[in-house]
Amino acid sequence: MPSLNMIQALNSAIDTAMSADPNVLSFGQDTGYFGGVFRVTDGLQGKHGLTRSFDAPIAEAGIVATAIGMAVYGLRPCVEIQFADYIYPGYDQLVSEAAKIRYRSGGEFTTPITVRTPYGGGIYGGQTHSQSPESLFTHIAGLKTVVPSNPYDAKGMLLAAIADDDPVLFFEPKRIYNGPFDGWHDRPVRPWAGHELAEVPEGPYTVPLGQARTMRQGADLTVLAYGTMVWVSLAAAEEAGVDAEVIDLRSLVPLDIDAIVASVKKTGRCVVVHEAPRTSGYGAELSALVQERCFHHLEAPIQRVTGWDTPYPHAQEWDYFPGPKRVAEAMRRAMEG
C-alpha cells in the first residue's frame, strides 16, 4: 500500500470520485491547469479533462452559488476555497442557501456539495491564511462540518463527503498536509512517509462521517481534538506524562457523542483543544455536551485550550497557537482539579 501525504491522499480521493461518477467535478481558484496552490487537484484536469477540473473566478460566493446550482441539477461538485480565511464571501450562499434548500423545498431540491478548504495556523500565514472558522458552520442546521487529521482519513472522509447527500464543509488542516506536526515548532517535522495512517489504499473506501477515532487509549483524562490539534495533544500527553485518551473527533457535525460520553465517563476528566478563538468556539459546545451528559462522572472542571480571542497574529504565532506546552498545562490542571 502506498504511503501518501495528506495532499496526495486528498488528490487520490477526488480522482477516485471523478473516476467512479461522471457527476463529480472539481473547481476553484487555481485548481485547474495548475492543480491548486497546495497541489490537491494536481493532474486532475489532465486526466479527466477541462470540463471536470477547472479554474474559477476569484469570487467565493460565485463558486459556492454555482456549485449549489449544479447540485440542484444533479451533479456532485467538489469545490475548493483556497484558504478558509476567504470563505466569508461564500458564507451567505452556504448558510442561507445550501443549508436550507432541502428543508425549505420540502425535500424536493437538495445540494450535495463538498466545499474543501485549507484552514488553521502554524504556517506563518498571518491573519488571512491561518484562521479556523469551523464553528461558524457547526452552528448552522443543514450543514455538515468535518476535519481529517491524517492521510487515511482524509481520503476516506472526502469520498464520504462527496457521496453525502448534504452539503459538507471539509476543513483541511494545512499545517499537517506534509507531516503530523505536533506543535513543537522548533523541532524537525516528521513527514507522513512511513506513518501507519499514511498507508492509503489506491481504490475507493469511505470513512463514515460522524465517527470519532480514538488515537490513544488512556485512563487519566479525555482529550477532545481535531485536525492539527490531535497531534499536538498526543505530544502534550507525553510532555505532561499523563495517560490521556486522545479522541480525534474527525467530524464535528455529525458528532460522535457516544464515543465522547463513553470516554469521559471512563476517565472523569476532559480537555478540549482547538486552534480557533475560545469564545463561541466549538469547544464551548463540546464542554456543554460533556457537562450535560457526564456531570456526575466529572472529577474536575473541563479545560479548554484554544486560540486567543484576538485576530491571528504573524510575529507572535507561537504565542497564539495552542502548542503542546499549553495543552500539557491544561492536562495538569485537569488532573489537579
Binding site: 460565485g62 452559488a65 454555482t66 442561507s96 442557501e97
Partner: peptide
C-alpha cells in the same frame, strides 16, 4: 434572501451544459 438564486441559476445552466 434577495439575489442568491441568480448565480445558482448560472450553476444549474453550467451543469446542463456539462
Amino acid at each position: 434572501n434577495l439575489g442568491t438564486q441568480y448565480p445558482q441559476a448560472v450553476g444549474w445552466a453550467m451543469a446542463s451544459a456539462y
